[in-house]
Amino acid sequence: MTIIDGKWLFIGTDLRLSECSRIMGEKGFDVFHYDGNSYSEQLAGILDEITPDHIVFPILQMEDTIPVDKINKSAILYPGVAASDWLAPFSEAGFTIRPYLKEVEFVWENAVLTAEGFLLEYYPSAKRRISGEHFYIAGFGKVAKMTAAVLASLGASITIVARSPEQLGEAAAIGYQTMHLPTGSVDVKGILINTIPAKWLQVDADSTLRIYDLASAPGCLKGNSPDEYYTIHLGLPGKHFPVDAAKALSEALLRMNSR
């Protein structure tokens, strides 16, 4: 038996998980899908019945956890977003843990899908073209880089807002305008896309800055910042491109096991 053989169990209601299960099944793998995000008697029964060799957890951390004694001791676990204390019982029990959200190619592919997904969020809400518009993008990680590239390709002007000199230098070298991440209120007008997963942004009560938040919880607004012009857009790959996102996940799982 090779390391990618055996039974695969996909857990989660996110369409990416069910689609990934389907794709893996079409490739000849022995797959099962549990359509839930929390531990239940049904999931316990599935674990007892099929004793999976590979368990792919939901994109976001499960509402509770699976008792370690319900899992095949040789099983490989693939968490999505998961806190260290949630993972601790599995680590202490000696399970092999391979977080798929740390697989570099998968993260980049998701960044591309997120950037394209943002367009599908922006057009119906703004009802404006992108060409000639000015976008501020907070952060310059993978999602920010792909979003900036997509917007620039459509004729937008870009200002990267970051704290890291390395990120600001890289952004300037590409040709973007740059701005140091402020510690107080942000005094800019127009459109800001946040990709920083932290509460860093303070806006004045009369601000009309339109904020699209693409980062994970807790959102970027600090304190009592007004949220009239603020919207959060999570899971865009799964929302707009579930089949493409699932294909990327299946390929990431296979890459993680081939190395």
Rank of each mutant, 00 (worst) to 15 (best):
G25F: 07
E49Q: 15
E166F: 15
P242E: 02
I23H: 05
P99E: 01
A171N: 04
S38Y: 08
S216M: 14
E166M: 14
T208I: 05
F95I: 10
A156S: 15
V81P: 00
L209I: 15
M256P: 01
R259F: 04
L47T: 03
M256R: 00
P79G: 00
Q42V: 08
I66P: 14
D64F: 03
A115N: 06
N257H: 10
I191M: 11
S153D: 07
C20S: 10
L236Q: 14
K70L: 13
D35P: 00
A88R: 10
S38K: 13
A173Y: 11
G117D: 02
M24G: 01
G80N: 05
E109K: 07
T147R: 01
F32R: 10
T13V: 14
K247P: 04
N194M: 15
K27V: 02
A83R: 15
L77M: 01
G169W: 07
S258A: 08
V31Y: 04
L253Y: 06
H54R: 00
K127R: 14
S131P: 14
K222I: 12
F10G: 10
I160W: 10
I174V: 15
I3W: 05
E19A: 13
K70M: 09
G175Y: 01
P52V: 06
N257P: 12
L154S: 12
I50A: 06
E103L: 15
H233N: 11
A152V: 12
K127T: 11
A152P: 05
T159G: 03
G94D: 08
L87H: 13
Q61N: 13
I55Y: 06
V243R: 11
H180Q: 07
L253A: 06
G155S: 06
T195I: 04
P242K: 09
N72S: 08
F90W: 13
E26L: 14
C20Y: 00
I50L: 07
A148N: 03
V31N: 03
V161L: 12
A198R: 14
V56A: 01
P182T: 03
I71S: 02
L249G: 00
S258V: 08
A246D: 08
V68K: 13
L236F: 11
S40W: 03
G184S: 04
I66D: 04
G169E: 11
Q61Y: 06
E170F: 07
S21T: 11
D85M: 12
K239H: 12
V150W: 05
I4K: 11
R255P: 15
L221I: 15
